[in-house]
């Protein structure tokens, strides 16, 4: 599926819808390089985010790959094809 570049704002919206918003974490802040642990995402939350990316953006992220994506930037790089190119 040919798509435009996904941005951190696109991902923020998806994160809000998929996992909700914690009271003590500002998703509008500088979260690009925050780890999902820092964002209080457990493995189920990462799985849900990956599933939303697949169904809404059309980019399949196999579970084994998803578990290695530790920050929003890594998710975006993966989705935008950069991570694949670098491998």
């Amino acid at each position: 599926m040919a798509t435009r570049e996904r941005t951190i704002d696109d991902l923020r919206a998806l994160m809000r819808a998929a996992v909700g918003e914690a009271d003590d974490i500002d998703l509008d802040g500088d979260i690009l390089d925050s780890t999902f642990t820092e964002l209080e995402y457990d493995s189920l939350a990462v799985l849900e985010l990956a599933a939303r990316i697949e169904t809404q953006w059309g980019v399949l992220i196999p579970e084994d790959d998803a578990s290695g994506l530790e920050t929003p930037r890594m998710f975006l790089d993966y989705v935008n094809g950069r991570a694949v190119a670098e491998r």
Partner: peptide
């Protein structure tokens, strides 16, 4: 309800 728990 805490925001995280609403969709969960």
């Amino acid at each position: 309800v805490p925001g995280r728990l609403i969709p969960q």
